[in-house]
């Protein structure tokens, strides 16, 4: 079924001597609107190592999807512009290569799965045609060979009677099955990195669990790295080795899942964790939400963008935006007050 089993390169805990698969350096992507420039991604840097699962979490408008689109060079232009930064994939800067070279990276090097399986599949083409297309483009498979491989892929993602299903159109499949097809297409050319952008958000919880387990199992079998983008803190806790928390275009906290969930050290991370009703804890009378709303991206506050909603705000926060700094092991936080914030967690968490 799986033709080339790739060796697992490393575990996430050991510092590596192999370089990361993907290195994003100071990436900035903006949208030019009649009202002004919106800095959707405002200087983010992170790595994805071989075989690891990285989570990118944040609320709507924080820039997590635009980050993924920028890596794939799929930001609609106009109005979007990737202004600066580097996206090094296996050492090659994807922002510097030609469109043609980029096309061979998409699908073969990096696969991507989007939220809406209905709108990412072409409604007038059969499932078979849509799976064989990347096989032809990237692997040069055609005819019977491509069809065999497509049937194999459908089976791999758990669609029974795969031969016959190749002739189906997207509307003949359920939402969960469509997302399975998207995973089959995403993994068809055995990319080294799979980006899943809110891939299970539109699905029911029991189907969501099926799809996530499938994605996690397949990527670990194939040794594929996984970048999960979601607003769901639970999904990241279950599946990601490390995570980045984004707010207003920047990474505010990053670390291993244990570090960030058990010892959150940015006020926004703590606010997020206290906002969700939690099944893993005794019932609380009231939630403790973050006050206020996400700032207008056209009119970000001076200094730290989270300042207007922050309980730990000081004078310093108004002057300049704090930069991401290491606080322990692999955990980094962009907050002047991170020591005080981190110390307060015992009261609010656990």
């Amino acid at each position: 079924m799986v033709r080339h089993k790739r060796a697992k390169y490393m575990t996430t805990d050991t510092p590596t001597n192999t370089s990361p698969l993907l290195q994003v350096r100071d990436l900035r992507t903006s949208f030019i609107t009649p009202q002004g420039k919106i800095p959707a991604v405002n200087g983010i840097s992170f790595d994805v190592n071989h075989g690891e699962t990285l989570g990118l979490v944040g609320e709507s408008g924080c820039g997590k999807s635009v980050s993924a689109l920028s890596i794939m060079r799929l930001v609609p232009n106009p109005p979007g512009v990737i202004e600066s930064g580097e996206v090094l994939f296996e050492g090659v800067d994807l922002l510097k290569i030609s469109n043609k070279e980029m096309q061979s990276v998409r699908g073969a090097g990096i696969g991507m799965i989007f939220q809406e399986p209905m709108s990412s599949l072409n409604p007038v083409l059969t499932i078979g045609r849509q799976i064989t297309e990347p096989l032809g483009v990237h692997l040069g498979l055609s005819g019977v060979a491509a069809e065999n491989r497509a049937a194999e892929l459908l089976e791999m993602v758990g669609i029974a009677d795969s031969r016959r299903r190749l002739g189906d159109h997207p509307h003949q499949l359920s939402g969960g099955q469509r997302q399975r097809v998207m995973i089959a297409i995403g993994l068809s050319c055995e990319p080294k990195l799979l980006i899943a952008d809110e891939a299970t958000t539109a699905l029911d919880v029991t189907i969501q669990a099926q799809i996530l387990e499938l994605m996690k199992n397949l990527t670990s079998q194939l040794g594929t790295s996984l970048l999960i983008i979601t607003h769901n803190l639970g999904i990241i806790a279950r599946y990601a080795d490390r995570l980045n928390v984004m707010y207003a275009g920047k990474i505010r906290e990053s670390g291993t899942a244990e570090q960030v969930y058990l010892r959150p050290s940015h006020p926004y991370t703590i606010g997020l964790l206290n906002s969700v009703p939690r099944l893993d804890r005794p019932l609380s009378e009231r939630l403790d939400p973050i006050e206020g709303e996400i700032p207008d991206p056209l009119n970000l506050p001076m200094g730290c963008a989270f300042r207007p909603r922050c309980r730990w705000v000081t004078e310093q926060c108004k002057v300049a935006e704090p930069v991401l700094g290491q606080i322990a092991g692999r955990q980094s936080v962009a907050c002047y007050e991170s020591k005080a914030v981190s110390g307060s967690v015992g009261i609010t968490l656990q």
Binding site: V205, T206, A209, Q210, A237, R238, A257, V276, R278, D280
Partner: peptide
């Protein structure tokens, strides 16, 4: 209930899950 991921990595890893 078992399908819902909770924001607690330790709880998640020890929990029995039923995949329908």
């Amino acid at each position: 209930l078992s399908a819902i991921p909770t924001p607690n990595p330790i709880h998640e890893r020890s929990r029995e899950r039923i995949i329908l």
